[in-house]
Write a protein that binds this DNA or RNA. Structure first.
Lengths: 296, 296
DNA sequence: ATTATTAAATGGATCACCCATTCAATGGAA
DNA sequence: TTCCATTGAATGGGTGATCCATTTAATAAT
């Protein structure tokens, strides 16, 4: 259904070339890689160097079709065997490309007859993984992430005040009720889960998926720290639901100043709690466990 | 040097199983997948279902080692052949995992003796690709991205006012000079390139790599639109360098209000320019071409 | 000493299979 | 007829062997 022919422009002379003997020209001096030189007698169009690997080119082609709107979410790519042949590559290489695209959240691979590689849609959680990797690699620090979160949250509160709709406020209200239930019944970890959801709902209520994505990505790691802290110490933020209600009231009144002030002071108290014992803020506590494709 | 043993817990009966003939049991009724049932007479420990794919598990293991600090940037993984054996998987599958990690910016693969898979460090551009994919897939819209950019830029200006150091201001100053040169010599596209760099420098001057990353990711696409517009229409923003100088002056004086005002008005005029002819804001214009691993 | 050659290590790629899952088509039993 | 079990084909998941290409160090030739 889709044409993705790759003219491999490969470095290799031809697929399954007859094993050009290693030391064919005993005294050659030119260090020019023999590419396909000796093949055609006078082919003056020397192609530029090409170290690009097959799977990169494949990813690129598919992303190109996506960008051009030729491929859309829900579309199915041809079966691996067919596509590999169309592209003129081995199935293994094609799979490397498909795997990469799957991990990037572009594709979803499904087994069985009627299975195949489908263009994925609407996965807004991809940035979380990037953020985690950055942190694992030491490219960014916990401090930078926390600081960024404060600023982003500031922005989110402002936008939520401006744009939150009734449905958003209702969802937040329901979330707070669940928080109250969890508090009453002493389910501390569930309460952390509620917090995670609270911020997600707040982010969504900005009405801007880009902002929401950014917010989620800086919140995800933070909530892991909170989870680890609550999980190990057994202590939890006091008067959480109550504070949330106050905040929600300010949000409902579109009172940016109050909402911002409440959120900031809450963030500060959480930060104090986390920093109580150093080491709880260590990366390994939060990042270890649960590192799958993108659970959470 | 590193132990990453995976007990595959595989579904398959054993590597290279002796090709159990298809229709061996003519009248079997149990739909239980025969896993390794007939092998050992009474093995009561039925392992839980295992749909998890090998390459996912491998990625997970490596990320785990990373999160635990056992693997650090610069470290080298064992050669593919060795690692595959350690993990108990075929080399092909291992490569699928390595490829995914490479595309995610976690690894860098290098050929030749002394080559190998090295843990990458400090690549802050990974979020750009995510943003591009989201846009291609229609998960986010150009409008949302532009809007987010305005807000993020607002934040960046505030932080830059607070945190920019002399070196940052000097770099911005040098950038403006290059912009002037390009303007004088009519190199319009170079001027766009200068703009891209300007925003990157501004983002860096916040002193927070997370914020900078976010800023870069929302700016990258925007600059493609600008590039496409300038490239096709030949018109360019008037008095650009001059406006930049005013802005830089405000930044140097830590005058948040003025800097913010100047930036906002500039963004508005750029937006007006872009929206002049609709269609120029179409995705395809900006996303097509240059979709490599992560050029730019 | 300098330079060219060789050899080994390692990722890049191919081929030819086989296994496991899924689902539609088929066919027999109630 | 209706329903359920069986079958078989399509498709992704995975393996092992083998070769190519690049890079670097060791070695030989000048």
């Amino acid at each position: 259904m889709i044409h993705l022919i790759i003219h491999r422009m490969s470095t290799k002379s031809s697929p399954r070339a007859p094993a050009r003997p290693r030391s064919s020209s005993p005294n050659r001096r030119d260090r020019v890689p023999d590419h396909r030189a000796a093949g055609t007698p006078a082919a003056p169009t020397f192609r530029p160097i090409h170290t690009r690997r097959a799977f990169e080119e494949i990813c690129e082609r598919i992303r190109e079709q996506l960008a051009l709107g030729i491929l859309k979410p829900g579309d199915k790519l041809p079966p691996e065997r067919d596509l590999a042949q169309q592209l003129g590559v081995s199935r293994n290489v094609l799979r490397e490309a498909l795997r990469s695209l799957e991990m990037a959240g572009v594709l979803r691979l499904q087994k069985g007859v009627k299975g195949g590689a489908f263009i994925q849609e609407g996965d807004t959680s991809r940035m979380n993984g990037v953020m985690r990797d950055m942190l694992s690699l030491g490219t960014i620090s916990v401090r930078e992430l926390s600081e960024a979160r404060v600023h982003v949250l500031d922005l989110v509160v402002r936008l939520a005040c401006a744009n939150a709709r009734k449905a958003d406020l209702d969802a937040l209200e329901a979330n707070i009720r669940r928080t109250e239930d969890a508090t009453r019944e002493g389910r501390l970890l569930d309460r952390v889960e509620c917090s995670r959801e609270f911020y997600k709902l707040l982010a969504a209520s900005t009405g801007n998926k880009v902002i929401a994505m950014i917010m989620d990505s800086v919140t995800e790691i933070h909530m892991r720290f909170v989870y680890a802290k609550v999980s190990s110490s057994g202590v939890a933020m006091a008067r959480l639901a109550e504070k949330r209600r106050q905040f929600l009231a300010a949000l409902g009144e579109r009172n940016v100043a109050t909402a911002t002030r409440l959120m900031r002071s809450h963030l500060e108290s959480v930060q104090r709690m986390l920093e109580q014992d150093p080491g709880a803020m260590s990366l390994h506590v939060a990042l270890a466990e649960v590192q799958p494709g993108m659970r959470r």
